[in-house]
């Protein structure tokens, strides 16, 4: 599980800290810090935080990348046949 906070949107309301103190923390007066790769154990808490965010700045999902693309097992589908690779 990966967590991303859009800190440009974030206004440090701190609701995520209440929902998932294992992941989010306000350091100093107004600085939001968070663990972007929390243990799956905290999934429910992360979802609570995402729902509670007043500006909906939290994204949760699997780490982006080839591993997540279910329809593209690299070994079985060479890019050449479908992506338009011109030799």
């Amino acid at each position: 599980m990966r967590v991303m906070v859009d800190l440009a949107r974030c206004q440090s309301y701190g609701q995520c800290v209440f929902a998932a103190p294992e992941i989010f923390e306000i350091s100093g007066q107004e600085v939001l810090e968070y663990d972007s790769a929390p243990s799956d154990e905290w999934r429910l808490h992360a979802l609570r935080a995402r729902a509670a965010c007043p500006v909906q700045a939290i994204t949760i999902g699997p780490a982006a990348g080839p591993g997540q693309d279910l329809r593209q097992p690299p070994a079985t589908r060479p890019a050449a046949d479908s992506v338009g690779v011109l030799r």
């Binding site: 599980m1 999902g61 780490a63 990348g65 997540q68 693309d69 329809r71 593209q72």
Partner: peptide
């Protein structure tokens, strides 16, 4: 840990 989350299956190459 800095890897970004993806919100959906991107079906990307």
């Amino acid at each position: 840990s800095t890897g970004l989350p993806q919100r959906q299956d991107l079906d990307a190459h």
